[in-house]
Design a protein around this nucleic acid. Structure first.
Lengths: 131, 131, 131, 131
DNA sequence: GTGGTCTAGACCACA
DNA sequence: GTGGTCTAGACCACA
């Protein structure tokens, strides 16, 4: 089942938030491949946002091969594997950007490794205590 | 000595690029605390951009306590320690955002750790070969 | 409802006047939290000033956490409590500056207290007669 | 004796800082009426600032009747009583501005009185403990 | 010379 | 429609 939530206060564009939601639901296996997605109008009405915004998200997802639409019937989720791969490639790219920024800041690879380790450990501890 | 370079084609706003340059030069210790910065007009002329854009960058840096400017006298670099701390705190925050995104994507902490390790190793190899 | 008035002849920068107006309207409870603010263009048109000037005011208010703006959607008032606190802390700070100046001028704490009392009484009398 | 100190980091214009110093030294009785003031060049050299800045301060003080200059001989301090009065009138004016701001912020006269009392008490306690 | 304010106006992404 | 970025250029106080 698709249930989207968006954060109206966030600076992240609504259409990006929507795309991310689809991606994540699929990657987590919470929705199955070929499952029908809610219509643009449906989503827009549910979230109280502009249909154009939803359409933009769907369009981009389709262009990226993550969903497909059948004229007259609606939009359907693509293979969920592709979502997982797509998300992972996004994550990789973002981490690479982060590494480059660390290096530009004058940190040595070793210092960066240490920083990563430290932040991860702190985060992981917090995460596990949440559960 | 200050020497700024910007990428006019980048999607990163010019004023953000400028801020980053100041931050990095200071964090790397390439400029000293209380050193006078080139004037708004000077930087604008050197880079062929509008003085307002430079002023915006300087203004934000000042607000963040990283430089200080005295009307009629010029702008001066703040304590370089604060720059290093500021940059590191930015890096930490960005990495935390990345970790959260990984978790939202359905990756387990362990999978995230693996991904980090993998991306880092690849990057590090490439970095060392560059030199 | 927001209705701004500015004094073009005042030495106080327009953007500072605007910031103060928002702050005061909010602190007085004349506008509610999360209420949408008039757009940058709207305010600029109403007051006959440049949109950039309005944007500068909004920008600073946002930085100070008193309003928030979402690109493409508009600007919204933050929690009105924070405005009241912010204004009061500003008033406190200014009064402290005044006290320090009085002391630097060679007045004893007692002389300062007397001066405050005197000025306040005169002012208060005038105020009440206005109504 | 005149010994000026200025804060190069302050946003208060240097010439205003200078004027304030003269005023305060005189009001406190640390310099006597008709005492000769150090020359513009002297002050500028001592403080490492531009002579124009010192001249501007002296000019304004003279215009306001607080010092007088004898062509060919130099500048001299005016009656110290006038300095005390001038300073006090400045303080009054500033406090009135503060009161007006408090009122504009929506505080009742009573609330303002309370705020004054509170800030004063805190300040006074701190002051007396300093000694 | 320096930074600070403001105008007029263009172009962008987003809703 | 909205805010965000940027340019070109004027005028100010201050040093």
């Amino acid at each position: 089942m698709f249930s989207f939530t968006i954060d109206q206060h966030s600076r992240v564009p609504l259409f990006v938030q929507l795309k991310e939601q689809v991606l994540i639901l699929a990657a987590r296996g919470l929705v199955a491949a070929d499952e029908q997605m809610p219509s643009v109008r449906q989503v827009a009405a549910d979230l109280g946002i502009n249909p154009n915004t939803v359409q933009k998200a769907y369009h981009e997802l389709e262009r990226e091969g993550l969903i497909y639409s059948v004229p007259g019937r609606g939009s359907f989720l693509g293979a969920t594997d592709s979502h997982r791969q797509y998300l992972e490639s996004l994550l990789r790219k973002k981490l690479l950007t982060w590494l480059a920024e660390g290096a530009r800041s004058g940190l040595s690879p070793e210092a960066i490794r240490k920083l990563m380790h430290e932040v991860y450990t702190d985060w992981q501890k917090k995460e596990s205590s949440h559960e």
